[in-house]
Simulated scan of single mutants.
Amino acid sequence: MTTKIVPVASAHPAFDQVAALFDDYRAHYGHPSSPESTRSWLHDQLAQHRFSAAAAIQADHVCGFITATIMPASLRLGTAWSIRDLYVAPHHRRSGIANALLQHIIYNARAAGAHRVSLQTETDNIPALTLYTEVGFQPVTGLELLNLTLDPTHQEPGETP
């Protein structure tokens, strides 16, 4: 079966299918299903150009998606692309769809003159790590990933509620 990889914006006819699959993706990682909230959030991210999305479509059915952001690469005076999400519906896995989605982003990043494409995944996600290394992604050494979780109820001294 032929798979088409197409960019998806909030006005694209496949957007609702992508949003539904995005909700499945969130549930896959233990978040409660919330189709309307997911759809609204995804719509806002795309409409505000916070990231871009592409869908893998077979016979008018979305079977996977990928999202990416473009960030400044300050020291290189260029850009770097970051893959944020990649998900293929379970019954479509191991059919080359994830690879096609990755190649779509890599092709577009290269065409745009990006200096690199990065991604991150869990250390125990062996299928993803295998795919990523087969495509050519390499672990980054010498860097640490640090997070600061922000508490929306926290107020700085002197702030008024």
Rank of each mutant, 00 (worst) to 15 (best):
D85C: 02
M71L: 15
A100L: 07
D85A: 02
L145E: 14
F137W: 09
V117A: 02
E36K: 11
K4F: 10
Q103T: 10
P32H: 08
A128N: 00
Q58T: 09
V117C: 06
S52M: 15
A47W: 03
A100W: 04
L102R: 06
P161V: 14
L21K: 04
T141A: 03
P7R: 13
T67N: 00
T160N: 13
P90L: 05
K4C: 09
L21F: 02
P157T: 13
R39C: 00
N147P: 06
I83Q: 01
A128T: 04
A11W: 10
G78W: 07
S118E: 15
T38I: 07
Q138R: 14
S118P: 00
A112V: 08
A54N: 03
G142A: 09
S82A: 07
L102V: 05
Q138P: 06
E122L: 09
T133N: 09
P161D: 07
I70A: 12
S95V: 12
H31K: 11
V88K: 01
G78E: 06
I126P: 07
P72N: 01
D24I: 06
A112C: 06
H43I: 09
Q45G: 05
I57N: 02
Y25I: 05
Q120N: 12
P157A: 15
F15T: 02
G30L: 01
I105E: 08
A54W: 04
T79K: 13
I126L: 15
